[in-house]
Design a protein around this nucleic acid. Structure first.
Lengths: 192, 192
DNA sequence: CGATTAAGCTGAGGCTGCCTCGACAAATCT
DNA sequence: AGATTTGTCGAGGCAGCCTCAGCTTAATCG
């Protein structure tokens, strides 16, 4: 049996430093920020960065893991509570999430059919939450009959993209309008 | 007074070749396609490309000029005709337009406050068309009272972005939903 | 048809960024 | 301590951006 060794202390330290610097860099310059710059600021050679994260996606994925987990908890809560504006809350939360690093939404959208990364899994799970929220809302008569989970995915992706390139307000407005468009055709007493 | 010379024939030829190659490259690889590759395929040194087009934006702008003109003609026609689905037609046309080169929508959105380029002017004019269409539709009672031209701009930008990163269908769906959301709150006899 | 001259062309070179890989260092284990 | 494995280092190859000093060559003039 492979009685594996304890991981090296310096390795763990470098890993943490890289994550911290990457987070700062991605927040400031978007997901395309220079990896060499990140390594340099982490006080580590470029090869070390690649040792820990074979590619950019892996690095982004590692950074997103915790954040994603929180999002899923919110999703589960919303599904359980069945609040009328659950869908609204969800869409805005995901949009906000996807806007933390510039270019993140595009990166995710581009690589959806990619190799099995944790990013991929997370995307699927997010889609699933959207699907469930739509199903509930539709049963409650709050949505038009042809509304789908894909509509929610589309909307959040679009809003996240706008969040980066136009203003947060524009993204918010688009969400409001599209959700209004998802309402049943012959009006009901939805808010606003 | 400066009796200026006739422009050199080779210069004009190179200009045309560069445009042709750039169009092909941008269609295939998006607006970030390699400029050196374009120059090479045009049978011209990289310096020549930069001689004609000091930066990427200029090159894209030159390619878009004709296309934009056509779009504006459509816009004028739509405004004149006052057809009920003018807004719908317009949004879809602009979206289609912005999707010819991958990344175009982002490029335009990023550089709206940039130096005075013809791109900038075109964007303003497009916004203006949207504004007018909204005004007409609202007077006709086809739109909710708080609808603005900015909403149209937002929508087209978002749809164009989706067109690239997800599917054309997704973009189309978003347009449909958002336009539905722009309808008056207490239903009328809109199509679909 | 030269000669003149300005417009235009060229491509090496400096820079940044991506990523790999063989040589090296050091932490762990015995 | 010595052996072993794990991790680090950074030069180097590649591609793309952009500039600029020197060179061509097309247009013009006599």
């Amino acid at each position: 049996m492979t009685t594996s060794r304890r991981p090296r202390a310096d390795a763990r330290r470098n890993y943490e430093r890289l994550l911290a610097e990457a987070d700062a860099a991605f927040r400031g310059g978007g997901v395309t920020a220079s990896l060499e710059g990140i390594a340099r600021r982490a006080g580590v050679a470029i090869g070390t960065l690649y040792g820990h994260f074979p590619n950019r996606r892996t690095l982004v994925g590692a950074l997103l893991r915790d954040r994603n987990e929180q999002l899923f908890q919110l999703g589960d809560r919303l599904i359980a509570q069945q609040s009328p504006d659950a869908l609204d809350t969800w869409v805005r939360a995901v949009t906000e999430h996807a806007a933390t690093y510039g270019g993140l939404a595009v990166m995710l959208a581009d690589g959806l059919d990619d190799e099995a990364s944790e990013l991929h899994a997370s995307c699927l799970r997010m889609a699933d939450v959207g699907e469930q929220l739509v199903a509930h809302a539709r049963k409650a008569g709050a949505l038009r009959l042809d509304a789908t989970g894909a509509d929610v995915t589309t909307l959040t992706t679009a809003a996240a993209s706008l969040h980066e390139h136009l203003s947060p307000d524009a993204a918010d407005r688009l969400i409001t309008l599209t959700l209004a468009g998802l309402a049943p055709r012959h009006s009901s007493e939805r808010h606003m």
